[in-house]
């Protein structure tokens, strides 16, 4: 495993730890989109269906279990925890899941490496992951104050796929791996969606101002 891949996984893990800290210690999910969190559950469930069938490494299996478990528990807290659920900005989190799920599923049926259940679900999970942040970004744009934890969470979540892009470049040129258009292009789109957020995040950090996205 190269350093970019590890950096990607660690920023992904750190983003989840930050979000869980906000939820468990601060008892708040203010500014967090339940829609996006539910999409991540779908992403992990459809991508890791091979968990019980194929073994890659101890690291790989543990990380998959962690991503599945944490994403499900985040959704549970936001929906059912009696204190946390009251901090959820329900009225502004209005992005409809189906507008992302349906096109991604149709695209996965049409463009995939092999027309098998596992392969189509895996492809679907990559397409869906690329756009799953959209409800979260819409929610941030509608929020007046974005607290530091939420801003850092979204930043780390975006940085994770950017590191994966570097990892894919490294694997292609240095480790001589094959071309993998589906994850590469999905990952590129996923990172590009964050471009605007990255710009305002870095700007607010440089000017030591509170993060605010223009409407």
């Amino acid at each position: 495993m190269n350093a970019f891949r590890l950096a990607g996984d660690m920023t992904h893990l750190l983003s989840i730890i930050l979000l869980l800290h906000k939820i468990r210690a601060m008892k708040s999910c203010a500014g967090i989109s339940l829609r996006t969190q539910e999409l991540y559950v779908i992403v992990f469930v459809t991508r890791y269906v091979d968990l019980s069938m194929k073994y890659y490494s101890f690291y790989n299996s543990i990380m998959k279990i962690v991503f599945l478990g944490t994403s499900i528990s985040i959704v549970w807290y936001m929906r059912y925890h009696k204190v946390v659920k009251q901090t959820y900005n329900k009225d502004v989190d209005t992005f409809r899941h189906i507008f992302l799920i349906l096109p991604c599923f149709v695209l996965a049926l049409l463009i995939n490496r092999a027309f098998t259940v596992i392969e189509v679900l895996w492809t679907f999970s990559l397409y869906l992951e690329a756009v799953a942040i959209l409800p979260q970004l819409v929610l941030l744009q509608r929020s007046r104050n974005i607290d530091n934890l939420t801003g850092n969470y979204v930043f780390l979540l975006g940085a994770y796929r950017a590191f994966y892009l570097l990892n894919w470049i490294y694997r292609f040129f240095i480790e001589n791996h094959q071309v993998r258009w589906i994850p590469w292009l999905s990952g590129l789109l996923q990172t590009a969606i964050y471009a605007d957020f990255f710009y305002y995040y870095i700007k607010s950090w440089k000017n030591r101002e509170k993060l605010k996205l223009p409407a």
């Binding site: 891949r5 996984d9 992904h12 091979d50 194929k54 890659y56 490494s57 790989n60 990380m63 998959k64 991503f67 895996w122 994966y164 990892n167 480790e175 001589n176 791996h177 094959q178 071309v179 993998r180 994850p183």
Partner: peptide, 10 residues
Amino acid sequence: SRRKISKDEL
């Protein structure tokens, strides 16, 4: 020749 595709990523 290039290495075969492995889904060892997350």
